[in-house]
Amino acid sequence: MNTPDPKRWKKIEVEEYENLVQQTKPKPPLLKHCIWAFIVGGLICLLAQLIMNYLLNQGIGKVDASSYTSVIMIFLGAFLTGIGIYDELGKKAGAGSIVPITGFANAIVASAMEFKREGYIFGVGARIFTVAGPTLLFGFVVAVLIGLIKVFLSS
């Protein structure tokens, strides 16, 4: 007779338990989250577009106008983080407020605020990119790769 293998027993136990967990765990309200994300993300983009149109109407060139718009949106994201509104928005909107450039500003300013008490060098300085760091690093890597592709294609 085969002796029961404890590892196999444990595996069955774990699988059974996983089923129980999946049955019990409440599912996130996906549709509601999507609607919130769509509306908030859309409004942020609409606001940016309005700013951009205004700048264009003032006779600013297209390249400059889009740079100014980004700067203004980053400022707004940082400002709303500073006065404690952006995290409340993020709880509801999820990706709708994380994906736009304002969300990137939020990630950096939130880290800076969080670690201020540990001083400006080892706190703010060392930790400001804890959340945004991966985006920056891989953004740079992709930029370099695309730059290289362009160099090869144009040569």
């Binding site: 765990k25 983080t81 952006y86 709880k91 939020n106 990630a107 300013v109 605020m113 969080e114 959340v131």
Partner: peptide, 10 residues
């Protein structure tokens, strides 16, 4: 960080 806008799961 506490001021970061993150959505929590139920």
């Amino acid at each position: 960080p506490t001021e970061q806008g993150v959505q929590k799961t139920p």
